[in-house]
Design a protein around this nucleic acid. Structure first.
Length: 685
RNA sequence: GCCCCGGUAGCUCAGCUGGAUAGAGCAACUGACUUCUAAUCAGUAGGUCGCAGGUUCGAAUCCUGCUCGGGGUACCA
């Protein structure tokens, strides 16, 4: 249920009346703004909710804020909703929900056994818990994950995948019509690499025995060759640049010493900064060169690799040629592409399965390739395209550089594909909104893309770039292995699960009655806990900030982690078995939730805020708000759980029944909330 | 050069559509297992919210300048 909306509704008529009296003076905030100032109390000592609109009304109304607050709280009808209304400080209105209302809402959620699907196929279902349908049901397309299928998924894919999946689920849960689409990279240069590599470095037998590892090996091999060739090409340039940079250091040094006797502080400061910049440049170049030399030395030790470096000196061009042959429809390349592609899908599907992520569609770049030429033709007809330096460009007033939709050599770009994708989605899915869950470095691309889409006439669809920060390593730099490679996603999952298994085993051993799990049970729990920790570590972060990936912290499995939330679910189950009952029995028992103390009250208050928390998530597409909510809810639960006067088992029969119902609602809310984050629970830990 | 994002406790970060005394986790310290699983709970300590101005009843939050860091910036995605 929507709590905030209910409270705001009660205040609306009173505020409307007040606003009409300031009509002449048009400077008063809007009704909506004022209602927005009713929100959960920041500090529980002030009550449950607070209204802060009296202060900004003081000037337009020509009254003291406290008087306004007084008047409003005397007039507003909060019958059945609040038990206490008071004015405090300069004019804050503090509200306390009536216990009866709290119980009534909680009972409604508890009694709602309807289930809602979280995927299009309806395979994942969760409890509705009294959550109401949206005011307007929208068609929402969520575009996320979008890896290149030709190479193994790495740590960079995790944020898009996990955030997108969660947003899609929240949208669906709140009643929207959602289509998830994985816009796979299955048509780009990476395939040129694999095709070339398959022909030149492929091992037929290995491929037949296990295609995926062999393809992966081929990709990595070509990648390594290209890297080395690039280094060979760039090394002289860098060395030259190093020389220049060193000269610059010397010049800067001289300039600074020349300035020293003068008293021009600003000039000295600028000179010092120049020097520092130059020195930084030198050290960066030195490191770059050092690393490259190291890599080349290593390569030199590998005889066959060195031979390949010589034989395939023009690898870069060759790869591009294979790619454009593929795009041009050359049968031999197309055939190979069809042969290879399913294996690439297998590879990423295994990761998705592990992460419990599914898509309604996986329409990759290849799906759009024959729509690109017609799209450019359409842009031309619309008069949006202009040729510049041989390329077909759409120029935009807001940007210096144009959006290029066709290269000088006639090839299309990802901008072209993205436009064709919008075209297709609008035509076939008629979305009100499309969410692109893609990292922040592409924000300018999306700004341009959306601007062009609007010029093309797609004004009715709201296009949103849900951007997120980079995954950093412990050193504060983009997350890489010690060797400088990107970190494979699958290995990361394995590590997280392995770590979770350690903890599960250790705690199981330490149990009072001795270990209770079999090896298989431990493994299953570790899988849920490990994957949950990995996802939650990411989701609980504000998506816009760079995310420092600290493996040890993530698998600490205590504090604000998925494990903590999962643990609360397991503990509730512990209560049920102690009480020798089941959730089904509790629900059919039709017990009434009622309040006997403040810990119960705080827990209930948190429980009935579930929908409000979910709606907050969608305001700015921020799953971390759901994490915050679930964490706070769980804290309230454990406070309740640890209190001597909140024992469930052994309380008076009707109190026990009420508390069992509360616990059931708690367990279902946590389970549902975690499901909306794409995280599972286990009955015992 | 231009554009975008960020600087909050020792560490990692919430809070940013302005609200009362700036929060959490980790790390440190004290206490709670004959109890519904101690992966828990209660408590202590820790801060000139990068700096300087401004807007107003009120600023971590909005505006301006500065500073430090990251990213992007015409044919890669």
């Amino acid at each position: 249920m929507q709590l905030l909306a209910q409270i705001r509704q009660r205040f609306a008529p009173v505020l409307k009346a007040l606003l009409t009296s300031v009509e002449s003076n048009g400077t008063a905030p809007s009704l909506e703004t004022l209602l927005g100032m009713i929100r959960p109390a920041q500090n529980a000592q002030f009550g449950d909710y607070q209204a802060n609109f009296a202060m900004p009304l003081a000037k337009p109304l020509g009254m003291k804020p406290a008087e306004i607050a007084q008047q409003v709280s005397a007039t507003v009808d909060l019958q059945g909703l609040c038990s206490e209304v008071s004015v405090a400080g300069p004019g804050f209105i503090n509200l306390k929900l009536a216990d009866d209302f709290l119980c009534q809402q909680a009972n409604r959620a508890f009694g709602d056994s309807t289930s809602l699907p979280l995927d299009q196929a309806g395979l994942i279902k969760v409890d509705r818990l009294g959550v109401s349908a949206p005011n307007s049901r929208e068609n929402i397309v969520v575009d996320f994950s979008s890896p290149n299928v030709a190479k193994p998924m790495h740590v960079g894919h995790i944020r898009s995948t996990v955030i997108g999946d969660s947003l899609a689920k929240v949208c669906r849960y709140l009643g929207h019509q959602v289509i998830t689409d994985n816009h796979l990279g299955d048509w780009g240069t990476q395939f040129g690499m694999i095709i070339y590599g398959f022909r030149n470095f492929g091992n037929e037998a290995a491929y037949r025995a296990a295609p995926v590892p062999e393809l992966s090996r081929i990709y990595r091999y070509v990648r390594r060759l290209m890297d080395c060739l690039e280094k060979l090409r760039d090394l002289p340039k860098w060395e030259q640049a190093l020389g220049t940079a060193k000269e610059r250091v010397a010049t800067c040094q001289q300039e600074l010493t020349a300035l020293e006797p003068t008293s021009d502080k600003a000039a000295q400061k600028a000179a010092r900064k120049n020097l520092a910049d130059a020195q930084l440049q030198v050290s960066e170049l030195e490191e770059l060169i050092h690393k490259a030399q190291q890599q080349l030395r290593q390569a030199a030790q590998d005889e066959s690799f060195s031979r390949d470096l010589v034989e395939h000196a023009h690898l870069h061009e060759a790869v591009l040629a294979e790619t454009s042959k593929l795009h041009a429809g050359a049968p031999e390349n197309l055939q190979l592409w069809h042969e290879i592609l399913p294996h690439c899908h297998d590879e990423i599907d295994r990761v998705y399965q592990r992460l419990n992520v599914e898509f309604d569609h996986c329409l990759g770049e290849s799906f759009y390739h024959d729509r690109l030429a017609p799209l450019v033709a359409l842009l031309k007809r619309q008069g949006l395209v202009r040729e510049s330096e041989g390329a077909q460009c759409v120029f935009l007033d807001q940007f210096d550089a144009p959006m290029i939709v066709q290269k000088r050599d006639g090839a299309f770009l990802y901008a072209t594909t993205d436009l064709a994708t919008i075209q297709y989605r609008v035509e076939h899915w008629k979305p009100n909104r499309v969410l692109y869950v893609v990292d922040h470095r592409q924000s300018e691309h999306f700004d341009k893309l959306f601007a062009v889409a609007q010029k093309m006439g797609h004004e009715q669809v709201q296009l949103v770039h849900v951007s997120f920060g980079t995954v950093m390593g412990n050193d504060g730099k983009p997350f890489k292995t010690r060797e400088g490679d990107t970190v494979g996603l699958e290995g990361l999952i394995d590590d997280a699960v392995a770590k979770a298994l350690e903890v599960v085993a250790k705690l199981d051993e330490a149990k009072d009655g001795g270990p209770e799990f079999t090896a298989e049970q431990r493994q299953a729990i570790a899988e849920t806990v490990g994957v949950g920790a990995l996802k939650y570590g990411d989701l609980s972060q504000n998506r816009t900030s760079d995310y420092r990936f600290d493996f040890n912290q993530m698998v600490a499995l205590e504090g604000n982690t998925a494990t903590y939330l999962q643990y609360s679910f397991a503990r509730v189950n512990g209560i049920f078995s102690k009480a020798e009952t089941t959730p089904e029995a509790i629900r059919s028992n039709q017990a009434a939730i009622r309040l006997t103390n403040d810990a119960e009250r705080t827990l209930l208050l948190a429980l009935i805020r579930f929908q409000d928390a979910l709606e907050e998530v969608l305001v700015d597409y921020r799953p971390n708000l759901l994490c915050n909510y679930l964490f706070e809810l769980t804290q309230e639960f454990f406070r309740f759980y640890n209190r001597a006067d909140c024992r469930v088992v052994g309380a008076e029969p009707d109190v026990q029944a009420s508390r069992l119902a509360m616990c059931d609602l708690m367990a279902r809310t946590i389970k549902t909330g975690l499901a909306l984050l794409g995280i599972k629970v286990v009955g015992k830990m």
